[in-house]
Design a protein around this nucleic acid. Sequence first.
DNA 1: TTTAGTACTTGGTATTGCAAGGTACTGAAA
DNA 2: TTTCAGTACCTTGCAATACCAAGTACTAAA
Lengths: 110, 110
Amino acid sequence: MADYTTDNIKSQMRKGLLEYCTLLCLSKGEAYTSEILTILQQADLLVVEGTLYPLLSRMKTNGLLEYRWQESPTGPPRKYYKITATGEEVLKELNKEWGAITASVNKMCG
Amino acid sequence: MADYTTDNIKSQMRKGLLEYCTLLCLSKGEAYTSEILTILQQADLLVVEGTLYPLLSRMKTNGLLEYRWQESPTGPPRKYYKITATGEEVLKELNKEWGAITASVNKMCG
DNA sequence: TTTAGTACTTGGTATTGCAAGGTACTGAAA
DNA sequence: TTTCAGTACCTTGCAATACCAAGTACTAAA
């Protein structure tokens, strides 16, 4: 099993949750991209660098996130992202939406 | 609320589940496109014709679905889609995946 | 000064969703 | 007969997105 088709559908299922999970992650406190990446990957979100950077930029542009630069002792400075008040409100909406979605899917299963 | 950004993220969350829910729908018996469309829309999947036709074709090409033509008393003939044995196996995988995803998300919430 | 490690950014390509328009069949109205 | 409305299928063109790969830039150690 786990052929190309199955993997493709699976990854699509997870892709759609990327923004939501990123907001969830940052609602617990600020973090920079590599940390976010690791957290999302540990939740099996299968996300990679080239996806996450543009995604964070979009969310910043849309006012859900903000960032500050912070020097790093071991390399170039880091962008620490933080959720905004708007982001918090959107997250509340998305939490409701997630509940509705699981209800929808479970209804289709039953 | 419910501004452009929120709606966009919401729709992405649901989009990723289209193939899965289509398989779920057809695992209950065959149906033609308009019926599938109605069922998915009743589950709030926000799908439209121009999305569903190519999607069903892709799934047929990938061996998940098959169809037969059937005359209609009230118009042109209909394509009745049915899940294949391969589709059933993929669906089992996706059911497991859905369980894993909800677990992942809920872990991130907690 | 070169190399390795960390971190951010940016093309190019492929996939996908959707709006809009097109084809074709049936039956009823003009 | 012709025209129209309803049903059903399909395609085209545009925009958004994900990902791979490469590029830039900073630090520290060899």
